[in-house]
Design a protein around this nucleic acid. Structure first.
Lengths: 233, 233
DNA sequence: CGTTATGTTGACCTCCTTCAAAGGCTGTGG
DNA sequence: CCACAGCCTTTGAAGGAGGTCAACATAACG
């Protein structure tokens, strides 16, 4: 997790003004001028796979925008296990609770190598007050969190394990054009509220039925239509 | 569901300025003057038990503040069943998605007779722009929705059914001082992602073990400490 | 007082967990 | 380059938890 933007050497620094995240992320409503004046305290971090971005209960000073990669938000259970409550991808905001609470509510871990923009709380709150566009964008981000959480309840925590797994794979959206890295069986279990073994069994069975094709080491493609039949049960 | 505030006859109309909701709800940052100028378009509705406040997918023009009673947010499943994704009580805001979307994302139904304040979207958005206090309050409401959704994932959709039920009863917070109306077994099933029968079995078993005492018709009190032992499994 | 929802209980069977072991992949050191 | 360790995945067998279907009890209601 090494800083980038604050390092003048970093070639990506200049790209921030033309950052691809601008198009869908928090700052889409800003002019280049405004963007420049804010950019200084914002830092670009690389989060290697399995690295912890922040820990549940830790002091929260920053919000993050996910530029690439995938991040999971998990909560530790009293019995030693863990439950994943959110799965974030490029364009999602991480750690919004920073704006109203001084502690993070989850532990954020990179599922794959990820790039994030670290934004101090004050930057966001200030922009929020001065710029109506940001304000609207923030509300949308918040609602998106709610919608994603609801999806975890309705789609990933309801019904038999096989249907949940099918819905998870659909959620991951791994078509031929967009092959994705398949999560570990342990993570899939924590996502669906089932054991690692059951997750393994179901994935293995899906492979046998031809619903999943594991291309390379851990890239995979899946039959969306076939899966959606199972999802409706 | 009959309007109150707009009916000049209604005696509760005057109470709005001294509304007990003011203390914890959306308008806690407002002066009496400001409050008065806005109050006109706001209406107080009574929602009888089992009545539908709004339906999933319906056009969303209003946000609601829950003054009393309890409201469930549910989603219909493709197989005919249903999943409850939120349980709201006095002070909670209902239908926040109105501010960023023109459709409601859930169906809102009163578990018990409820009183709500109906607030047109424009009132909230306008206040949000002019009054920083409202702005902060709104963000907190939004985060609260996220936290409640997360609680449904972590506490009510994780682990064996008995532990989930124990956590649900703890969440309902029915001590001796605050006896609560126990939800129907069907609703408990939809809350926990289990069948009505299993919900019934567990509740009956809890009664036998003395963890729940059903006082009156459907008021009940429960042994919080006894339940929390089961919750940790 | 019959009729209809809602709660309770039983029997059976499926699904999932648990415990255990074997196979595969990766990295490391000899 | 091979051997070995460590981790993850896969698979098996057994037991338990929860689903399903059905009967019955109880409460609510006209």
């Amino acid at each position: 997790m090494k800083p980038n933007c604050t390092n003048i050497e970093w070639h990506g620094r200049a790209k921030c003004t033309a950052c691809e995240v601008r198009n869908f992320a928090l700052f889409s409503g800003l002019s280049s001028q405004e963007l420049d004046s804010i950019l200084r305290p914002i830092d670009n971090l690389h989060v290697p796979q399995h690295a912890v971005l922040y820990e549940e209960g830790a002091s929260a000073f920053c919000v993050y925008t996910l530029r690439s990669g995938r991040i999971k938000l998990k909560v530790d259970l009293p019995n030693g296990g863990q439950r994943i409550v959110r799965l974030l991808r490029a364009g999602d905001v991480v750690g919004l609770e920073t704006l109203v609470d001084d502690r993070y509510h989850h532990t954020a871990i990179a599922l794959q190598d990820a790039d994030v923009c670290r934004i101090p709380r004050e930057v966001v709150t200030q922009l929020d007050q001065t710029n109506p566009g940001i304000h609207q964008a923030l509300q949308q981000r918040w609602q998106r969190s709610v919608d994603q959480a609801d999806h975890f309840i309705v789609a990933l925590s309801t019904g038999p394990a096989e249907a949940r797994m099918a819905r998870l794979l659909i959620t991951l959206d791994c078509t031929g054009e967009h092959p994705e890295t398949i999560p570990s069986r342990e993570d899939m279990g924590a996502l669906l509220g089932i054991t690692t073994e059951t997750a393994s069994r179901i994935v293995a069975e899906f492979k046998r039925r031809g619903l999943i094709h594991a291309d390379k080491s851990n890239e995979f493609v899946c039959d969306q239509t076939g899966l959606s039949k199972l999802a409706h049960c």
